[in-house]
C-alpha cells in the first residue's frame, strides 16, 4: 500500500498554500511580484543587464502570448487540448519561407503565410475535429488525433524543408541602441509588431461582436448556446483566429530568434500551455498576460542560470501553476458540471 498519511499531508499543505494565495486579488499580486522581481534584479545585476533581459522578455512574451491565444480559445470553446498547436506555429514560419521563395516580398509572404495557416486550421476542423465531435469521441481519441495531426504537420514541413536550421531570409544583423540597451533590428521589429498585435487582438476581442461571442463561448459554452449563438460559426472563427495567430507567433519567433528548425513548435508548446494555464483556460486576455509572464520569467532566469535552462523555467512554471493555481491568475473555480 502507499503511504496515505503522507499523501494527505501533501494535499493539506497544497490546499493551505493555494487558499492563502486565492485570498489575494491575483492580478494585483502578480503585478506586485513582477515589479518586486524587476527591482531585485536591477539591484543585483545593475539596470542595464536587468532592463536588457526585460526587453528580451517582452519579445519572448509577445510571441508566447499570441501563440497561446489560439490554444486557450480552442481549449475553452472545444475542450480540445490541441497538441498540434505548436506545429501550427512552425507551419506559419515555413509557409513564409515558401512564399518568399516563390517570389513574394517578405512582408507579403508573412501575411500570406498567416492566411494560409488560418485556412489550414479551418481545414483541420472540417476534416478531423468536426467528425470526431459528431462521433462523440472520448478524450483519448481526441488526444491521439491531436498528436497525430502534430506529427503530420511537423514532419510534412521537415519532409520538404529538411531538418536543418533556417532563417526567414531577412539577414539584417544591424542593431538599434536605446540608451545603453541594444536590440537587434529584427528583434525590435518583432517587439513592435508583437505588442501592437497583442493590443489589436485585445481590442478585437473586447469590442467586436464576434470577439465577445467567442469569449462568452469559451467561458461557458452551455450558457452561450442557450443564448442563441451560432455554434458552428463560432467554432470556425475560433479555428481561423487560432491558425492566424499561431502563424503570427511562429513568424515573430522566427524573426526574433533568427534561426529555427521544424522542432521549435513542439519545444515552444509547453511554454504556450504554461501561458494558457497561467491566464486561465478559455481566457484570451489571460493567455496574453500569461505569455508575457512566461517570457519575462524565462529571460530573467538567464541572469541567474545558464541560458540553456530557459525552457526548463517554462516547464517548471507550468507544473507549479497546475499544482497550486490550476484555475489561473484570472480564473475562478469552475462549477462542477
Amino acid at each position: 500500500m502507499t503511504d496515505t498519511t503522507q499523501t494527505e499531508r501533501t494535499e493539506a499543505r497544497a490546499s493551505v498554500l493555494s487558499s492563502a494565495l486565492a485570498a489575494l486579488p491575483r492580478p494585483a499580486l502578480l503585478l506586485a511580484v513582477l515589479i518586486v522581481l524587476l527591482c531585485a534584479l536591477v539591484i543585483a545585476f545593475g539596470p542595464v543587464r536587468a532592463l536588457q533581459a526585460t526587453v528580451n522578455g517582452f519579445v519572448a512574451g509577445s510571441y508566447t502570448g499570441l501563440g497561446a491565444i489560439g490554444l486557450t480559445l480552442v481549449l475553452g470553446v472545444l475542450k480540445l487540448v490541441n497538441f498540434a498547436h505548436g506545429d501550427l506555429l512552425v507551419t506559419g514560419a515555413y509557409f513564409t519561407i515558401l512564399f518568399a521563395w516563390l517570389g513574394l516580398p517578405l512582408p507579403l509572404a508573412m501575411l500570406t503565410a498567416m492566411l494560409a495557416t488560418a485556412a489550414l486550421a479551418l481545414a483541420t476542423e472540417k476534416i478531423i475535429w468536426q467528425p470526431l465531435r459528431l462521433a462523440k469521441a472520448g478524450s483519448l481519441q481526441l488526444f491521439l488525433s491531436a498528436i497525430g495531426l502534430g506529427l503530420v504537420l511537423r514532419f510534412t514541413v521537415q519532409f520538404f524543408a529538411g531538418s536543418q536550421v533556417r532563417t526567414l531570409g531577412a539577414n539584417v544583423v544591424t542593431s538599434i541602441a536605446i540608451g545603453p540597451l541594444r536590440l537587434g533590428t529584427l528583434q525590435a521589429l518583432a517587439l513592435v509588431v508583437g505588442i501592437s498585435a497583442m493590443v489589436i487582438v485585445g481590442l478585437v476581442l473586447r469590442f467586436t461582436s464576434i470577439g465577445k461571442e467567442m469569449r462568452a463561448f469559451a467561458d461557458n459554452r452551455a450558457l452561450a448556446e442557450v443564448s442563441g449563438i451560432d455554434t458552428q460559426h463560432i467554432i470556425n472563427v475560433t479555428w481561423i483566429a487560432s491558425g492566424f495567430l499561431a502563424a503570427l507567433s511562429g513568424i515573430l519567433y522566427a524573426t526574433a530568434i533568427g534561426s529555427f528548425n521544424p522542432n521549435f513548435g513542439i519545444t515552444l508548446l509547453l511554454s504556450l500551455f504554461a501561458a494558457t494555464v497561467l491566464g486561465g483556460i478559455g481566457n484570451p486576455y489571460g493567455a496574453l498576460v500569461g505569455g508575457l509572464v512566461i517570457g519575462l520569467s524565462q529571460e530573467w532566469s538567464t541572469l541567474l542560470f545558464n541560458a540553456r535552462w530557459k525552457p526548463a523555467v517554462g516547464f517548471a512554471l507550468l507544473i507549479l501553476m497546475l499544482m497550486f493555481m490550476p484555475q489561473g491568475i484570472f480564473g475562478r473555480a469552475k462549477r462542477r458540471s
Binding site: I128, P131, L132, A135, A137, Q141, L142, L144, S145, I147, G148, L149, G150, L151, V152, L153, F155
Partner: peptide
C-alpha cells in the same frame, strides 16, 4: 501521424 488520425476515427 496519419495512422493515429485514422484509427482514432
Amino acid at each position: 501521424g496519419v495512422f493515429l488520425l485514422l484509427i482514432s476515427r
